[in-house]
Design a protein around this nucleic acid. Structure first.
Lengths: 143, 143
DNA sequence: TTGACAAATGCAACTGAGTTGCGTTATTAT
DNA sequence: ATAATAACGCAACTCAGTTGCATTTGTCAA
C-alpha cells in the first residue's frame, strides 16, 4: 500500500517511530471513510486483537495531527472525530436519528467569496471553516 | 421591554414559571450579542448578586430551548453556547487567538441549493446546518 | 388568604471525553 | 549490544454536563 510508505516517510521526517499501534491506527482510519471518535478507534483496534490504552490513542492522534496526516472534525456532540487528512476538503451529513455520518462535497465559491468579504470589511482573517449538515438519512426517513 | 412580555406569554403557555433567575437569564442573553457558555452566564449572574447553581442554569436553558426562546451553538471547543433564538439565522467568526466571537450574516442561497441537491440525489433530508468560520480577529492580527 | 400541588432550586454524586505525571517498555542509532 | 529516547500504560485528574433526591417557592382553586 502506497499511503503507508508516505506516512512512514512523514513520521521519520519528524523523528517519530512507526509502531504497530500507529500503523494500525492509520489503517483503521483508512478503512473507514467516516470520521471516527476515540471510542470508535479503540473498539476497532480491539477487534483486531489490539487492546490499547486511550491515552496512547489520544497522544498518537495528536502527533499524526501535528504532522498533517489526520484532521479533526466536530460533529455537534461533545466528541472529536478523526479522519485522514489527504482526503479533499469536504463536509458532513449527520443523521440526527442514527448518528451515521456521510461525506459531502460542494462548490465553495460562495463561501470563499464570503470569507473574502468579511476579511475586507471587518479585518477578520478567516483561516478555515466548518460546515456540517444535520437531518435524516435515507434509512431513517423510511422508518 | 417588549420581548419580556413575549417570553412571559410563551412560558405561561408551556406551564412554566417566570422566576427571578429565568428573567435574569434571558436579560443576560439579551444584553450579550455573542453566544454565552454556562460559565459565562453564571459569572454574569453573580455580578448582579445572583449566585445560582449550575444545574439550575442547565435546566432553565433546556426549557427555554424547548419552547424556542433560545438556541444552542457549538463553537469548536467542548462547550455549548447559548443565544436568544429570535435573532435571525446567522453564523459566527471565532478568533483562534482570543476566542472572541462575532456574528456574521451571509447569503445562503448556495447553501440551500446544495441542501436541495443532497436531498434529491441521496435521499438525505437536511433539517439544519452549522457554519462557523475560524481565524484571527482584527485586534489579534495586529499583535 | 391559605393550603395543596407542581414546578423550581440546590446539593452531592455521577458520567464521559480528554489530559497529565510518572514509571516501565520498546525502538532506534551508534 | 547497548545507551538514549520515544512510546506506552496506568492512575489520578479536569472540565462540561447530568441525575436523583430533598427542600423551597410559585400558582391556582377553595
Amino acid at each position: 500500500m502506497e499511503y503507508r510508505e508516505e506516512i512512514l516517510t512523514l513520521l521519520k521526517a519528524h523523528h517519530l517511530r512507526l509502531t504497530k499501534i500507529r500503523r494500525s491506527l492509520v489503517d483503521v482510519l483508512f478503512q473507514n471513510e467516516a470520521p471516527l471518535s476515540v471510542q470508535d478507534i479503540l473498539c476497532k483496534l480491539r477487534k483486531i486483537q489490539l487492546t490499547v490504552n486511550k491515552t496512547t490513542v489520544y497522544r498518537a492522534l495528536e502527533q499524526l495531527q501535528n504532522i498533517g496526516i489526520i484532521g479533526v472534525v466536530r460533529l455537534g456532540d461533545r466528541k472529536q472525530y478523526y479522519e485522514l487528512a489527504f482526503r479533499e476538503h469536504h463536509h458532513h451529513l449527520i443523521c440526527l436519528q442514527c448518528e451515521r455520518v456521510e461525506d459531502v462535497d460542494m462548490n465553495e465559491d460562495r463561501l470563499f467569496a464570503e470569507e473574502k468579504k468579511v476579511s475586507d470589511e471587518r479585518g477578520f482573517t478567516i483561516l478555515r471553516h466548518s460546515l456540517e449538515f444535520f437531518g435524516l438519512c435515507r434509512r431513517c426517513q423510511s422508518i
